[in-house]
Nucleic acid binder design. Structure first.
Lengths: 261, 261
DNA sequence: CAGTGGTCTAGACCACATC
DNA sequence: ATGTGGTCTAGACCACTGG
């Protein structure tokens, strides 16, 4: 046991003597384990929805106690990289499940409180070059190839959100409207299964804007009507940004829900 | 040791025999400890900013191991009821600290990314009766006495957010504009130190609306301009709602920031 | 039944803060 | 030097799932 250990194992905190001015200057064992697991997750060693080895087995692999592995996995579960299921195992998180996490990246809700999953219609797929703004947002060079999607969300048939989505072209080679239309499920589920791009986290900025003519027609509101503007940058492993999205949303019979805790 | 234990201690999971159809049918020891600690926190046994007993001492009091107390406190810290400080102790969370948690309930940021704490001006304090809507929102009976505050937030002198705040009158007896004006710090800090009401969690609904004449003048925007409308219900211990708030926000040079994770 | 995650213990030692 | 939270261990037992 312990032959797979690539980090100073068995040290139990004895690694105080950092060479020079490093920021952490001390890293708990379970953080090292977590980093190793994250690496293996990112590498695709286990696919989304599959189970990873049991805590016991990982403990043996790394030559540490089960409690230490447990703490590492606890953090991964807290970051939604992984899902624990008692009695069954620990599974790589996936966007392709009807689990409760469907609304993790979808904050637009009906005012009456009913949970309704909207229908998504892809209106347009184009290829283009990143503007300076977009390039800065998703860490590209201006002029890099991007994919431009326009997408409409309908709640109960009512057009509610018009999204403009920008993706780095090199990560989504072979993207076509037809391929998306055939796919059943959420957009992030599509990205995950078809292109291996997993969205883990996102930051959003919300503003109120006046409806421009094109959006007004798509959402069936008057020109100049107030719309909620939601700009999102979504990140994958290593906090690398891989999507910029600008959504315009009618809030006649819907709202954006958020919890502060 | 162990004489303070009020729950089946030392059982180590042996409490399977629930009498009949109860929902949990089994509650981990650390959850019971957590419930006891929450109770003592709510009772005011320790005041905000004060330290609670050490893990070692609590373990002795409850007659359980330190690891079990630790897990209970971990969850309390996760819910921001309590703050851990290595080497110093565990402290009751407070809104009256310039810590990083100042922006926990303040999501309006400048577009340029600079963190600026806005100036707050209380424009009006009135007493009134709860409308049916408000009563439902904060769990009052229609006609119950409420406190109605109007408050303006300025960022760099620029009027940006106009808040209408409704509070149950019985929890805020003796509230006056003068008392607030004298107080230094955030509104929730004021509620906490002056009235013992601690806001722990909030739910918000965001919409885009057109500026009415009064708001337009206060925020120096044109009538009908799009404004971000933020409705909030804030909760204290036991998830009891104790504040309804409706804020209207210009998003010319500001935005509402949110992280999805 | 065996295998998995979940709880709990008792004790050791480390990092940090304070005196 | 002491007391605090933070890490780690080795092992036991429990709850849940599935064959």
């Amino acid at each position: 046991m312990g032959e797979f250990v690539t980090q100073p194992a068995g040290v139990a905190g004895g690694n105080t003597a950092a060479v020079s001015s490093e920021v952490p200057s001390f890293q708990p064992l379970y953080q090292q384990i977590k980093a190793l697991l994250t690496q293996r997750l990112e590498s695709g060693e286990w696919r989304p929805g599959e189970s990873i080895p049991s805590e016991h087995e990982l403990a043996a692999q790394f030559g540490v106690s089960q409690g230490t592995v447990r703490k590492a996995i606890d953090e991964l579960a807290g970051e939604n990289l992984v899902v624990r299921r008692q009695g069954k195992g620990t599974f790589v998180a996936t966007h392709t499940e009807a689990a409760s996490s469907i609304f993790r990246f979808l904050r637009v809700r009906r005012n009456d409180g009913q949970d309704e999953y909207p229908a998504s219609e892809l209106l347009d797929v184009r290829r283009g070059r990143a503007s300076a703004d977009i390039a800065r947002a998703i860490d590209l060079k201006p002029g890099d190839g991007v994919l431009l999607l326009r997408r409409l969300l309908r709640y109960g048939g009512e057009p509610t959100v018009l999204d403009d989505i920008t993706l780095p072209a090199n990560l989504f080679k072979g993207f076509t409207k037809e391929r998306f239309d055939v796919y059943e499920g959420s957009m992030y589920g599509f990205f995950e299964t078809e292109f291996g791009v997993r969205m883990l986290r996102a930051e959003e900025q919300l503003r109120a804007v006046a409806a421009d003519p094109v959006t007004a027609e798509a959402l069936r509101v008057g020109i100049g009507s107030p719309l909620l503007c939601v700009e999102r940058i979504a990140y994958t492993y290593g906090d690398r940004p891989v999507e910029f999205r600008r959504g315009l949303c009618t809030t006649r019979s819907h709202h954006y829900a958020n919890t502060l805790s």
